[in-house]
Write a protein that binds this DNA or RNA. Structure first.
Lengths: 220, 220
DNA sequence: AATTAATTCATACGTTCGTTTGAATGATAT
DNA sequence: ATATCATTCAAACGAACGTATGAATTAATT
């Protein structure tokens, strides 16, 4: 086997595809752009991945495998430390969304590029992407939701589920739109540089999420 | 002028395009699908709108014109009623996001279909869409942001801007993903039917948004 | 009724898309 | 060194795309 060659090609393709998908979307990125940017032959994608659709899935699988494992590890560790006691909501939120935001600083795990891609893709219209992502997320979301149910026994479960949903939205959007819809934040934060902005995003978002999670229940 | 014919054709195209864009995205929707669903000739789109890109913009302009006017009207009315006093944050949030969510019930203004399209499109990668949307939103966002600054004079402006951003995200996502990433809510809310769910979304979301907006400030 | 203008129509153009093919090249193993 | 296998490569495929064209049709104007 000619291992070094093919592994290189695979990863070069995945890296190039990740960047281009983030910048131009799936439909907006052609195989020729990807292979061109990766410096490999056009036919390589179909040889290594089978199809463009399969490439898209592999771009996500590569990153989500780690993210999901890490999220489960963090939750399990916290639950073991807590024994029978329920976790604090802030712990759970921090475990789920903090792990995600941590990837932004980790260039080897995709960094901001992948986060932006993920945030945007959660609302992608293409069926095969949504079902794929739902499958990948399912176990982790269930575990964290269960933890929240236990942590907030007096709050109706439907309410918690919805607020989880809202938290996901605020987070995805905060990441995906960091320089997308800058209009909201543009003139107020230009005293901070780009890296500073990202460092400060996490505590800011966490405060917001926790405030929303613990808000008074709506009166119907 | 053959007015009735062309007006019909224009609106049939816009309606069909709105639905198809929502279901399949912009790149995922072809001119032939649009004209086919609208029951008009393929060349009609280029005749009436000039290009596919221009059609996309018109799909939004048609709805956003009303939404923006209404948002400004609501804000102005509230400010006049308040005189010199600052508005309550809940009023401002209700004015901005309540107006939006109200469109869901208004089929003549696009209903849920347009809301879903709008929510998803705020993070669309295509440049011409983002700049177009930013232009359309600019004035309204500025006015509401200013109202929030006045309502929360002790909160740093950067913080308010960010939380506005987060609120936009939670809302967009709540709308766009209502049946997209159902995995979060699926098993907890199936006791409610579809219309019921949408009626209840608004108070639920408002509680969440206000909780987030008024959350304790993060400690850096 | 005749003329003009606006709209609709069938059809075709050139481009780009994802994918396939079969030969060339490289590395591994006997 | 030779045979075997995996990988790369240049080239081409048919399909689908957005757009343009010029004739046919319909409505409005005189």
């Amino acid at each position: 086997m000619a291992e070094t060659r093919s592994v290189d090609t695979r990863e070069r393709i995945l890296d190039a595809a990740e960047k281009l998908f983030t910048a131009n979307g799936f439909d907006g990125t052609s195989m020729r752009q990807i292979t061109g940017a990766a410096g490999v032959n056009l036919a390589s994608v179909n040889y290594h991945f089978g199809s463009k659709e399969a490439l898209v899935q592999e771009v996500f699988r590569r990153r989500l495998a780690w993210l999901n494992t890490e999220r489960l590890r963090v939750l399990t560790t916290m639950e073991q430390a807590a024994g029978d006691k329920p976790l604090k909501p802030s712990q759970i939120v921090e475990g789920f969304f903090g792990t995600l935001l941590g990837m932004a600083q980790d260039e080897a795990r995709g960094g901001v590029t992948f986060l932006r891609l993920l945030g945007r893709t959660l609302t992608d219209p293409a069926d095969f992407i949504r079902t794929f992502l739902a499958d990948e997320y399912q176990e982790v979301v269930e575990r964290y939701k269960a933890a929240l149910f236990k942590a907030l026994p007096d709050v109706p479960r439907a309410e918690i589920a919805w607020r989880f949903h809202f938290m996901l939205g605020a987070t995805s959007y905060a990441i995906a739109g960091t320089d997308a819809l800058r209009l909201v934040t543009d003139w107020q934060v230009d005293d901070e540089d780009a890296t500073d902005r990202l460092d400060r995003l996490q505590p800011r978002l966490m405060s917001f999420l926790l405030g929303g999670l613990r808000a008074p229940l709506p009166k119907f």
